[in-house]
């Protein structure tokens, strides 16, 4: 499963399908407000696209697109975005994670500011879920069998 699959149908279909799966994942994250969706679901879909790449194109080719540095960056970035949004609210004079304080930062009223704050933390949750699902999958896939 770690090696590259030489089947030409699988390779070509995967190359085109991954783009659409990732677009759909981004759609699910961005439209979590008005339709079923949100950070958790969209993050899982994004992780599924990378898992499809690993199972067909091989882990070496996937690592060119999603390397170690990106993995460690995204692992921490999502939680950081979430916690930092709460901290910005604290700095702007509201309670921690009370997004109505963001109305001082953006030119909107406090109710719309809660809408924007919710969107920002959904993005953070999506990044975390995608990266952690992928980390768990890759680490369990590339584990060494023999005792070291």
């Amino acid at each position: 499963m770690i090696e590259k699959n030489e089947n030409i149908i699988l390779k070509n279909i995967t190359q085109y399908l991954v783009a659409f799966i990732q677009l759909f994942g981004l759609y699910v994250i961005a439209h979590g407000h008005g339709s079923p969706g949100g950070g958790f679901q969209g993050g899982c879909i994004l992780a599924a696209s990378y898992i499809l790449m690993i199972t067909t194109l091989g882990i070496e080719d996937t690592k060119k697109k999603y390397n170690e540095f990106k993995k460690h960056l995204f692992n921490s970035l999502g939680v950081f975005i979430y916690a930092f949004t709460g901290f910005v609210c604290l700095l702007l004079g509201a309670n921690y994670l009370d997004y109505s304080g963001l109305s001082n930062l953006f030119p909107v009223d406090p109710i719309k500011a809660r809408y924007i704050g919710t969107f920002v933390i959904e993005v953070g949750v999506g990044i975390t879920v995608m990266s952690i699902m992928l980390t768990i999958f890759v680490e369990l896939l590339t584990v060494k069998r023999k005792q070291s």
Binding site: H33, P36, G78, L97, R114, G117, I121, G124, V125, V129
Partner: peptide
């Protein structure tokens, strides 16, 4: 102003809950 109640409760009213769930995943 969020039509999806699940998202609103998840991210706004119960923000602390989701923050620490995300921390658990991390």
């Amino acid at each position: 102003k969020i039509p999806n109640m699940v998202t609103a409760v998840l991210a706004d009213y119960r923000g602390y809950d989701t923050l620490f769930e995300t921390t658990v995943i991390f």
